[in-house]
Computed example of a mutant assay.
Amino acid sequence: MPLKRSALGVIFCSFYVISYFTNKYVLSVLKFTFPTLFQGWQTFVGGLLLMVSGKLGWVEISSFPRSAVLSWLPGSLLFVGNIYAGSRALSRLPIPIFFTLHNASEFVTVLILKLTQRERTSWTKLFSVILLMVSAISLPLNDQQFDPGGYVWAVVHLSCVGGYRVFQKLPKSSHLSDLEQQYVNYLFSVLLLAFAAHPTGDLLGALEFPFILSYKFHSGCCASALLGFFLLLATVKLKSSLPVEHCGAWVFLAKVLATWLSPFVFNIVVNVSTLCCVLLSNCGEALLVYSNRTASER
């Protein structure tokens, strides 16, 4: 059993790292900076594959009432904000910086829960999220290639991620399974991003994209959509097979691998101060994983 769980974690980490690298390649190397189309394509393929998998009985997606869908729509809106702003930020920021800012979403989650539900937080967890926030705030002060637009989109992204994490903890979210929530997210995203493609100028910009007929572009887009779907399945399987604190440890490992392997794949320029911010964020997340594990053992 431990070997099986370890294999599942390794599979999850592999899909996680390769998925982010593929998205980064399409967004930054090929410079396909049209998130309504890029994310619309990914959610369309993901929703289609999820629907087919459900029909074939490969995954369990039950018929759910319309009231459950309506109650989940705010979560879907946060999901769209997450993927849209995330694409904007990832296209302009190196992966280590992106993840350092992304990790600050834990501070947003804790803050919202503290203000709305008066949730008690251990000193260890509180110190860990403070480390995550300090590392994120320190980044723009030390980044030699500071990109204001990239940081703004990253802030929108981490805010949506933090809010989405809180929304998942509400009682109404229990009416849908993780796969059903994601299925609703996919359907809502496709509709919203399709309507937004023309007003944002992405549709016209994509028609003039120089790599539109390139096999590298088509291969990258197809790979990103498929990898996103497999990452979803691996994530759901991981969450159903392991305790929450163990899942957090695997997610942490996946982020660390993506962060420290990315300089070998992409051209990244960082200074010592920026590197210290990234390391501080890693330490804060490691402490957060430890605090969650300690809390679960009580």
Rank of each mutant, 00 (worst) to 15 (best):
L3N: 11
K4D: 10
A7L: 13
L8S: 10
S14V: 12
F15A: 00
Y16A: 11
V17P: 06
Y20F: 15
F21G: 03
L27G: 03
T33K: 12
G40A: 03
G40Y: 01
Q42S: 07
T43D: 04
T43K: 09
T43I: 05
F44M: 12
V45C: 09
L48D: 01
L48V: 10
L48K: 01
M51Y: 15
V52Y: 01
G57K: 04
S62T: 12
S63T: 12
R66V: 14
R66G: 11
V69C: 05
L73G: 03
G75T: 04
L77M: 14
L78K: 06
L78Y: 05
G81I: 06
I83G: 01
I83A: 00
G86Q: 02
G86M: 03
S87P: 01
S87V: 02
S87W: 03
S87F: 10
L90R: 00
L93K: 06
L93N: 07
F99A: 00
T100H: 07
S105R: 02
F107I: 06
V108L: 04
V110C: 02
L113M: 13
L115A: 12
T121L: 11
W123V: 11
K125T: 08
V129E: 08
I130Q: 01
V134H: 05
V134W: 03
V134D: 06
S138C: 09
P140M: 04
Q144R: 14
D147G: 00
W153M: 07
W153D: 04
V155Q: 10
V155A: 15
V156L: 11
H157D: 10
C160M: 05
V161A: 09
G163R: 03
G163Y: 00
G163V: 00
K169F: 03
L176C: 02
L176M: 01
Y183E: 05
V184L: 06
N185H: 11
S189P: 06
S189N: 06
V190Y: 04
L193W: 07
L193T: 08
L193K: 08
A194W: 14
A197E: 02
T200M: 11
D202T: 00
A206R: 07
A206M: 11
E208F: 10
E208R: 13
F209P: 02
F209A: 04
F211A: 14
L213H: 12
Y215R: 12
H218D: 05
H218T: 10
S219D: 10
C222Q: 10
C222T: 15
A223H: 00
L226F: 08
G228L: 06
G228E: 04
L232G: 00
K237Q: 12
S240Q: 15
S241F: 02
L242K: 08
V244D: 15
V244P: 08
E245D: 13
H246G: 09
C247Q: 13
A249F: 12
V251T: 13
F252I: 10
A254E: 09
A254D: 09
K255E: 12
L257P: 00
T259M: 14
W260F: 15
S262P: 02
S262N: 03
S262K: 05
S273R: 11
S273P: 02
L275K: 09
L279K: 08
S281E: 06
C283N: 05
L287K: 02
Y290L: 15
N292D: 14
R293F: 13
E297L: 14
R298A: 14
R298P: 08
